[in-house]
Nucleic acid binder design. Structure first.
Length: 202
DNA sequence: ACTCGGATTCTCT
DNA sequence: GAGAATCCGAGTA
């Protein structure tokens, strides 16, 4: 994929990211999945619709510094004491938009993913990569190893690729699991995909 | 230094 | 549908 794809506001790039391929090089081999669910998080330069749910809301910190860097890079954060979640940075350098990858449909390395998740090798796709914490565990993505890496460097163990697959219907809805700005329609998912996380009824 | 709560998931019932 | 597991970042003092 091209750098300029990500040098855009996250709410613009996020729906276009659906159907693209996320790949990770691990000690056991390459793993890959098709992106089927994402959420956009707006940078603090957006003043008309502030996004207090974004980690960049209060400005640069050591934790979120990657979000303020150039587009197409990997921001990984640790959550709830147990899980990692992976984002792609958006906007030109200096602005801090990001896209959270919430779900993948596995396309390569399902058995390794299952092993990484502690599941039987025949585990269903949604149990492998249906959810932001699950997909990081399945792909072996962690903050110490992958935060700050470039998705677009051909030598990078993290790759964002495009094949000629075109998505069908896209569903737009509020983001999941957040308290602030919970009404903004910034979640994008492929309709009728088994790996898309179900919307929790409060 | 201390406190609070979270861009989650699992295991029950 | 509820509760647990579990830790770090950020805010306050």
């Amino acid at each position: 994929m091209q750098r300029r794809f990500f040098a855009e506001p996250p709410e613009i790039a996020a729906p276009l990211l659906l159907g693209k391929i996320l790949a990770c090089r691990t000690p056991k081999g390459w793993l890959a999945g098709r992106i089927v669910e994402v959420e956009a998080y707006l940078g603090p330069h957006i003043t008309e619709t502030p996004d207090p749910a974004a980690h960049s809301f209060r400005g640069v910190t050591p934790r979120n510094a990657v979000m303020f860097g150039p587009p197409g890079y990997c921001y990984v954060y640790f959550i709830y004491g147990m899980y990692y979640c992976v984002n792609v940075t958006c906007e030109p350098e200096g602005k801090a938009g990001a896209i959270l990858i919430r779900a993948l449909e596995p396309v390569l390395g399902e058995e390794i993913m299952a092993a990484n998740r502690g599941l039987a090798s025949k585990a269903s796709p949604e149990k492998l990569t249906g959810g932001p914490g699950r997909l990081c565990q399945a792909m072996g993505i962690t903050r110490p190893e992958h935060n700050g890496l470039d998705f677009l460097d051909p030598e990078s163990p993290l790759q964002m690729r495009s094949d000629n697959w075109s998505p069908g219907e896209i569903e737009i809805s509020p983001r999941i699991g957040i308290r602030h700005a919970a009404d903004l329609p910034l979640r994008f998912a492929l309709a009728d995909n088994c790996c898309v996380s179900r919307v929790r009824s409060s």
